[in-house]
Design a protein around this nucleic acid. Sequence first.
DNA 1: GAATCCTGCAAATTATTTTCTTGATACGTT
DNA 2: AACGTATCAAGAAAATAATTTGCAGGATTC
Lengths: 287, 287
Amino acid sequence: MDIFTTMQEERGRLSQSENRIADIVLNDFEFAVNASIVELAGKADVSPPTVTRFCRRLGCESFSDFKVQLARTAYVGMRYFKPEPKSIAPADVAQDIITKAQNALFLLHRGLDIPAIEQASNRLAGAEMIYAFGSGGNSSMIASELQNRLFRLGLRVTASSDHSMQLMMAAAAKPTDVLIGSSLSGRNAELVRAFMLAREAKVPTIALTQSHSPVALAADITVPIDLPEGNNIYRPTSTRIAYLAVVDILASLVAYRIQPQATVTLRRIKQQLVTHRDGDDRQLLGD
Amino acid sequence: MDIFTTMQEERGRLSQSENRIADIVLNDFEFAVNASIVELAGKADVSPPTVTRFCRRLGCESFSDFKVQLARTAYVGMRYFKPEPKSIAPADVAQDIITKAQNALFLLHRGLDIPAIEQASNRLAGAEMIYAFGSGGNSSMIASELQNRLFRLGLRVTASSDHSMQLMMAAAAKPTDVLIGSSLSGRNAELVRAFMLAREAKVPTIALTQSHSPVALAADITVPIDLPEGNNIYRPTSTRIAYLAVVDILASLVAYRIQPQATVTLRRIKQQLVTHRDGDDRQLLGD
DNA sequence: GAATCCTGCAAATTATTTTCTTGATACGTT
DNA sequence: AACGTATCAAGAAAATAATTTGCAGGATTC
């Protein structure tokens, strides 16, 4: 666990002096990582020993250990508390976007439901046919990414972003198939309907979505992805990056599970690309 | 600049004692962030003052400042030096993928050519029509992402992953249009050809690709994206995430540039989605 | 052979932690 | 209700540990 989370969780259980320290660290992180124990104590209006005790309570060895822990999570974790970019200068915009993306990955990792992912990858690895569903600019990309990643492993996959097709496919699917759907908001009603249909037909379903959302509830297995969205309307979706990472993880696990088969297929695809020299992802298959 | 890069760059200019310190820090990072100056000095077989001088030379205020800097970059930067995941246990695979993705973002940020990005976004903002090209599972995704992001801003865009279409479009484009192409490897010959065609017709071209690659050389403006690929054949493309981030940055800058127009279009699209309730990216337009 | 630079020693300084003590609060007892 | 005791927080001072500075010897280079 990282120190920031710990600090926020412990917040209630701390004494008032300790809370003041926590406040300062949380608010003025830059100051905190650079300050000595005396400076920090001074600013919080407490004595140095209190700071030491504060660090210990948070599970650190010592004050300097605390600072290291702090600096450690800072790069990613901290920025989460910072609001919008300082300016719209290109460098700031770039930094903001990259930071947000890193943050999304950070938070994703924190909240990842490993057992669910494992279960999902097992299902996928054993499926006779996989249907990947998603609509809207973002989820449809996830769906095709699933297709893209899984077909390379020698699996039978089709992706669809078309609601009507999704319903028909869900109706046509067999219990030995798997239906996997993505919805960033978790409120894609059509996808829910497709999942319902699948459920009636005993087709296993996997959802990549926000937990407790309608889509999540409609699926057999949910791989929850819960991230706060930034609020700049021009700046969507570091969330999408988190989804892609999840697809990456799923595909990797499936690959490990069906290793021999996958190697052969990959080699064949690669051969194809090298021979033709016009593909654009030779490198991406490894070299 | 981060301390790791600095350390590696300074490596040659350091004295032997200092080099020994650098070695230890580079190799056993975990030890280094936790050690006191005496411990570190002991392990490197030098005196504590030498360690202090070492830190100063690297541009740090003091030893503790050095440790903070170290811990700071560690989360992302350090992992870069670590090899493949420890095991194929789901949790390790997940961590590996996420770390690699964060790393890609980190390296992207480090190597970002801001002026090029700014230039590119200006061109895009002023284009009468935008053609977004990319082939192969990955770059075609980038192309459609460009389309997806830019059309929301009220720009005229079309994306194509079809070589023949690309050539025809390049031939049909006017000097007031812009052609933007993505190639992860930089060796997509067809894209190079399309760029050549565009050049003849004085159509401005933008490339998202590896610097110094054929594609980069064929374009007017190159936004270089240089990242080392991991070598696990099942594990492609934290690179793709970096490309997406670049698209995000470009789109944001374009948005800022044409603000009033963009707001209106976004509102309209959003209206559309809310009314129909079946889209999946209401949130992604902001709220 | 001179100058420069590296390096460690010892001293000085600074930072951190431990110990001890005080004061406050809560709880149980009369 | 009042008193006493236990418990805990928090600071002061002392002790300890860590870090830095100044200085001098030694190596290296020109």
